[in-house]
C-alpha cells in the first residue's frame, strides 16, 4: 500500500512561509484559514548553546488515520488508488468529529492555524490533500523542465519551497523523491523524526541534524 507523504528537511527550512502561501494560492484558501502552517520551535538551551528551528505542520497522513476511523459518514477516506487521506466534501456533514479524532487538531477547531479547518461557507472540514488533484499519479520526482507533467508533479508547497526543504512521494517506492531524500539523510547520519502522538503513526517525516537543534517531540 502506498505511503504518500512529505519529507521536510528542517536543517534547510528558514520559516519563510512560502509553502503556506503556495498552498493557499493553489487551494483557494482565504484569510485566517490554512492547510499548513510553520511553527517556530522556541529557542531551547542556555546561552551561548541556544538552538531553534522551524516546524512546518500539515496533515501527517497517519498510517492508521484516526480521522477516517472516526468519521461517521465515510467522508474521510483514503484514495483507493494512492492511499492518500482525503475528505469527500459532498458526504461530509460538518460534524467535526475528525477534529476530535486528530491528535494534531484542537477538538473544537478554535485553535488557529491548525492542520484542518472548518469551511463555514461550504459546511465541510478541509485539510491538506497533498494536492492530490495534481499529484495523484506522480512519482514525486519533479520534472523541472515541465512542472505540469502529471507523472512527475509535486505539490506547490514543495515546488515553491525557497530553501528546497520539502520533498514528496511514496515512501514505499525507493525511487520517489521523498524516499531518495530520506535515504540520503539516513546515510549521512542525520536525525529523522516524526511528530509522535498517542494512537497514531504519522507518515510525514522531518529531518533535523543534531548540530542544528534538538528535536522536540509533540508536547515537550
Amino acid at each position: 500500500m502506498a505511503k504518500r507523504t512529505l519529507v521536510i528537511d528542517l536543517d534547510r527550512c528558514s520559516g519563510c512561509d512560502s509553502c503556506v502561501v503556495a498552498c493557499k494560492f493553489e487551494n483557494g484558501i482565504g484569510l485566517g484559514n490554512y492547510y499548513n502552517h510553520v511553527k517556530p520551535i522556541n529557542p531551547a538551551g542556555k546561552h551561548p548553546d541556544i538552538n531553534m528551528y522551524w516546524l512546518p505542520i500539515q496533515c501527517q497522513q497517519c498510517e492508521n488515520s484516526p480521522c477516517v476511523a472516526a468519521c461517521p459518514t465515510g467522508a474521510s477516506y483514503r484514495d483507493p488508488d494512492n492511499n492518500v487521506v482525503l475528505i469527500d466534501k459532498e458526504t461530509c456533514t460538518g460534524c467535526k468529529t475528525c477534529l476530535a479524532a486528530c491528535p494534531y487538531s484542537d477538538p473544537t477547531g478554535a485553535v488557529r492555524p491548525s492542520v484542518r479547518w472548518f469551511n463555514e461557507e461550504l459546511g465541510v472540514m478541509e485539510k491538506c490533500t497533498l494536492c492530490n488533484h495534481l499529484t495523484a499519479t506522480s512519482d514525486g520526482v519533479e520534472n523541472t523542465e515541465d512542472t505540469t507533467d502529471a507523472a512527475h508533479a509535486v505539490p506547490p508547497c514543495v515546488h515553491n519551497c525557497s530553501c528546497g526543504a520539502r520533498s514528496f512521494g511514496d515512501l514505499d517506492d525507493p525511487a520517489s523523491g521523498a524516499s531518495k531524500v530520506l535515504a540520503a539523510a539516513e546515510a549521512a547520519g542525520r536525525g529523522i523524526h516524526t511528530i509522535e502522538a498517542e494512537g497514531v503513526t504519522p507518515a510525514c517525516k522531518y529531518i533535523l541534524s543534531a548540530e542544528i537543534a534538538d528535536w522536540r517531540g509533540l508536547g515537550e
Binding site: 472516526a70 461517521p72 465515510g74 461530509c92 460538518g94 459546511g123 465541510v124
Partner: peptide, 22 residues
C-alpha cells in the same frame, strides 16, 4: 451541531463503519 443536516442520512449509510459516532 452538523453544518449540513440534510446529509445526516450519510451516517445511516455508513453505520457499518463502527466509528464511535456510528
Amino acid at each position: 451541531q452538523v453544518a449540513k443536516p440534510a446529509q445526516i442520512m450519510a451516517v445511516v449509510r455508513n453505520i457499518s463503519s463502527g466509528s464511535p459516532i456510528s
